[in-house]
């Protein structure tokens, strides 16, 4: 019992931090700028492939630095020449623009790197078990993942709350006209914020790429889980997103460890004719089976009962 709780807690935290790593860029773009960026996962994928390509020549660490810079630069270009034009037509237009962009990026990646997974590996310097608990190994790379996520969280928090730049960004998001009048270039601020968001997505890609599968469909497979993280955390809140990542990581991991089901709690179904098969599907489902769907349930419940999210500052 202790073993399961301890291991689940550890796995949950590690998974939660992976989620935060992936969602941190979206927090900046969606949560702060309010852009429904469906291409976030595509920037994440670009990060992974750029990281892979660079790592083949210069090693993993060079990729970790260069890939986010490249993708961040690409992000600013996308903002400057695409999103900015679309912005005034509202959220749906932005959404469709990023939707289209996701299609384009996926096909370009397929053209360049093919459709099969590429062999993107964990760097040898991190390829060893960091520690062992109950005969289960925890690889050093996962610890690195965790530390990076925390570092990004701390750095973002510091920039947003404690620096002049962060102050201007915050002001520009809520009162762009006023900030413009004060002589700041609001357009450039938005461009930079978007670039940083895309760059953070790429950091996640470079790190998650070797740990997961680097393939041209990895963006699509990620699904909308990152939106769940941001919304559950609360729009506009960095700490909220961090907390939500942890929460979702833990909920999902503990759920996987549980084999409870209605059948387990109340005994097998009494045979009741043709309905039995249909009800049986629900009756015999274990908590573990539905674990990955729980975040979406959490999302719906949170939005109904606490529409601002865990720590959000606004509803939309």
């Amino acid at each position: 019992m202790v073993e399961i709780v301890l291991i689940s807690a550890l796995d949950g935290v590690l998974y939660g931090m992976l989620l935060f790593l992936m969602a941190s860029g979206l927090t900046v773009i969606f949560s702060m700028m309010g852009v429904l960026n469906f291409a976030h996962a595509s920037f994440y994928m670009l990060g992974a492939f750029f990281g892979f390509q660079i790592s083949r020549y210069l090693g993993f660490w060079a990729g970790l630095v260069a890939a986010p810079l490249l993708v961040g630069g690409l992000g600013t270009v996308v903002e400057r020449y695409g999103l900015r034009k679309v912005h005034r037509h509202g959220h749906v237009a932005e959404l469709l623009f990023t939707f289209g962009l996701a299609f384009v990026i996926e096909d370009l990646v397929e053209m360049v790197w093919g459709k099969l997974p590429v062999d993107y590996r964990v760097p040898p310097s991190l390829d060893f078990p960091a520690f062992t608990i109950f005969s289960g190994n925890y690889p050093a790379f996962k610890v690195f993942e965790l530390l990076t996520a925390i570092a990004i969280f701390a750095a973002l928090l510091l920039v947003v709350k404690r620096t002049r730049v962060g102050l201007i960004v915050q002001a520009a998001l809520s009162h762009p006209d006023m900030v413009g009048m004060l002589g700041h270039n609001v357009d450039r601020i938005f461009m930079l914020v978007f670039g940083v968001g895309a760059g953070l997505a790429a950091v996640a890609g470079v790190i998650a790429g070797p740990a997961l599968v680097t393939q041209s469909n990895m963006a699509g497979l990620l699904g909308p889980i990152l939106f769940v993280v941001v919304v559950v955390g609360g729009l506009g809140s960095l700490s909220g997103a961090f907390l939500a990542s942890l929460l979702i990581g833990l909920v999902q991991t503990f759920a996987v460890a549980s084999n409870a089901s209605l059948a387990g709690a109340f005994g097998d179904l009494v045979p009741s004719g043709w309905l039995q098969a249909y009800v049986g599907d629900i009756w015999n489902v274990t908590v573990a089976q539905v674990a990955p769907i729980l975040p979406y349930l959490l999302l719906v419940l949170i939005l109904i009962f606490r529409p601002r999210g865990l720590m959000g500052t606004r509803e939309s």
Partner: peptide
């Protein structure tokens, strides 16, 4: 946005 996200959650569920 809250409405949009609820529909997203319901759709996934």
């Amino acid at each position: 946005t809250a409405f949009a996200m609820i529909t997203l959650g319901v759709a996934e569920l």
